[in-house]
Nucleic acid binder design. Structure first.
Lengths: 337, 337
DNA sequence: AAGCTTTGCTCAAACGATTGCGCAAAAATA
DNA sequence: TATTTTTGCGCAATCGTTTGAGCAAAGCTT
């Protein structure tokens, strides 16, 4: 059980030079015309001493880490947890590893994570940005391929793949209107994030000019926010709205909780609609109508886009055509409104 | 905007040698009696050229990556997503980065991930093992500090921190008995995993010898499994059990779904109890009684344990006293039984 | 047999940092 | 002034790979 085996020990054991060993072990044998005898001997001893290449040294030399940096603003949020899960597995399929960082919605931590990614020589970055400006990410993007996911910037040179939140919000709002609701409370999340802004835009553009009463409240994608806003709006027995549009599943949960506390029946007293496709929305009673984000599609396209850039740059070509795509979500109609 | 700055460019810019620059930049200045003048000049130019150390080179030289490998069997499972979130943040607090791998319950992928961790020179590993034997992990554990979390092995030399699933299952079962339920269906998850075995043991030991009818079914921690087992047991209008013990929150969701399909009211027709502390259990109607795992406590102890080993080995000491701890969970009583 | 090609391999320089050892100059001591 | 001590820093090896360039021996051609 040799404690450590490297290319050098194999070299001396087989009598060949480290160069030859390296070329055999990296599959460059025939390119450099290594003899079959050498190949066999080297691979055999490599297996025998259980050789595992030092990926750190390899990275240092080749400038390729086979690692992607994944940056999310809150891995404890089930939405980002699911997203991360999908992406990690997609990357694993391509033989890439994932360095995961959580910015916790803080620009400063985002910046730190990006520096760390750079120092670790990741081959690419997939990020749900929290910064208000694209500047920082664009700068990094010149060194390392970056693809934004879920959130994007208005005018940016960076590729992104996101849900079409504007379209989604329109679908949801129009659905509520068609159902005859007359006064709607929209509870939003982080106001600086693009998904939130787009959902808000979709909501207001669908509703403005119509004889509908509405209000917008809230400022975080959290259960507490959902709860607080509903309590505040419906306090003291008032019932100022007949429908609620929760801008995320977490907000929805808070909403449900508050309505229960207020003794209002979801679907009967107050119609409820939500965003996100957390499976458990189907297990609530009543199941909640929501705009389901095409998470898998978004992730797959983002990963594919990233690798196109990586490969192009690796081959010394310039970046492929800029991909900035919004994938339309789907309305999953249940009985909450 | 210099494209790349390394210790060498700084050296030539300041007129000092790379050694001096390195020592200043790693905070070893006074230890090596570097003059204040040199320190100031070097730090100033480092800042000016926006120097970021190459963490790969640093790792290669120092054999320390400041990275921990985290191995989970399914990041898409909300339970492991939450767990990962907590751990990643705990590690970040200590200035450590996380390399995340998903074994998808497959021994082979676990093995690959461990090899990858080794190659990447992680400073430590936190793993939810899927292997049936501890051998592999123990072998790695001799090279790299390893702490098991959530799942453990019966007899192992590896440290672990897990929920006391046996105690949890006893609490749950005895609660059901106290409530007067007479026939209980237990739906289990992955039968080879220790948490499942312990929950099963807790369940059977609590119930055996008592005049209670019971059955055990199922084999995965999935929604589908929960659904299937209930449908199978309650099919054709039969109502063979008056309570169900779901061994995980995912199984519970399937159970809820099936009961709804069968037109059986949770809490009235059938009592339901579950494991895991997914927050949404409180938003179901009725809210579900469950054994809440002390996830944060478990994570914190696991991380602390890991770093004790890391630091001991770094200092050339032998490993600290073996920590193998089961943290007792708490029963969160709601209205589902 | 002389020259050219091919075969099969080795040498040594990177990649970007850290670090034991050593050494000249300045300061302190005798 | 001669010797010792301290101060401040540089040299060069090292971590484990990859890779361009080069070179001897064998094979082929004429």
């Amino acid at each position: 059980m040799p404690v450590k085996s490297n290319i050098f020990t194999i070299a001396s054991q087989t009598g060949y030079s480290v160069s030859t060993v390296s070329r055999v072990l990296t599959g460059q044998a025939e390119k450099y015309r290594i003899s079959k005898k050498a190949i066999d001997l080297i691979t055999a001893t490599a297996r025998q001493v259980n050789y595992q290449p030092d990926l750190v040294a390899q990275t240092l030399r080749t400038r390729q880490s086979h690692t992607i940096g994944l940056l999310v603003p809150g891995i404890d949020n089930p939405f980002f947890a699911t997203l991360s899960g999908i992406i990690i597995n997609l990357l694993a399929c391509r033989g890439y590893h994932t360095l995961l960082a959580d910015s916790r919605e803080l620009e400063q931590e985002e910046e730190q994570a990006l520096q760390m990614f750079k120092g670790r020589k990741v081959d690419g970055i997939i990020a749900v940005p929290v910064a208000t400006s694209a500047a920082n990410l664009e700068k990094i993007g010149r060194d390392i391929p970056v693809v934004l996911i879920d959130r994007h910037f208005k005018k940016t040179t960076l590729p992104y793949v996101c849900t079409d939140n504007y379209a989604g919000a329109r679908m949801a709002t129009e659905f509520l209107l068609k159902r005859g609701y007359k006064s709607i409370l929209a509870i939003q999340g982080v106001t600086t994030s693009m998904p939130n802004q787009e959902r808000l835009r979709g909501f207001t553009e669908s509703i403005e000019g119509k004889p509908i009463k509405y209000a917008i409240a809230g400022d975080t994608f959290s259960v507490e926010n959902g709860r607080d806003q509903v309590i505040k709006a419906f306090r003291e027995g008032k019932r100022p709205f007949d429908a609620i549009f929760a801008f995320s599943a977490t907000i929805l949960l808070g909403t449900i909780d508050a309505l229960r506390e207020l003794n209002l029946k979801v679907g009967k007293d107050v119609g409820v609609i939500s965003f996100d496709n957390n499976g458990f929305l189907d297990f609530l009673d009543p199941a909640v109508t929501r705009v389901e984000q095409p998470l898998r599609e978004v992730s797959e396209l983002a990963v594919a886009t990233l690798f196109e850039i990586i490969e192009a740059r690796r081959d010394g070509l310039r970046d492929p055509d800029l991909i900035q795509k919004l994938i339309p979500p789907a309305l999953a109609v249940r009985s909450s409104c």
